[in-house]
Design a protein around this nucleic acid. Structure first.
Length: 109
DNA sequence: CCATTGACGAAGA
DNA sequence: TTCTTCGCCAATG
């Protein structure tokens, strides 16, 4: 059984729309520091099979799964319209998910 | 309990 | 621009 914290990450990842991607760091900050970016990586490793894990990339738009599952993440992303640069990285300017943040006081920033 | 390990990332050099 | 270094924190042995 995955830890309770991981459930929060999974819920977030399920909200990423088709054709968009999120970064480990973005998910970490959306969780308000409950989980570090590295820990989000751990959560993704243990992700349930139905999770759209392929929509999570690193801060540079690179695919961190190339070593363990060559080509799979890229194929899945390409299948939903995500484009890649010549360097093989996702074009974040075009596909990064920008979720609506919860209303927050300026004084909290 | 303690050390190590990442599908990470910002800051330096 | 590329590379280290260091902090991060759940999981593992």
């Amino acid at each position: 059984m995955p830890g309770e914290v991981f459930a929060r990450v999974y819920a977030l990842v399920r909200r990423i729309p088709r054709g968009r991607v999120a970064t480990y760091g973005l998910l970490s900050s959306l969780l308000d520091g409950r989980l570090s970016a590295a820990a989000v990586g751990w959560a993704m490793r243990a992700a349930p099979p139905d999770l759209p894990w392929h929509r999570v990339v690193n801060a540079a738009g690179g695919l961190s799964t190339e070593a363990s599952a060559p080509g799979e993440q890229r194929a899945r992303l390409a299948a939903e319209g995500v484009t890649f640069g010549a360097d093989g990285r996702v074009d974040l300017h075009r596909h990064l998910w920008r979720p609506r943040l919860r209303r927050r006081r300026f004084s909290d920033l």
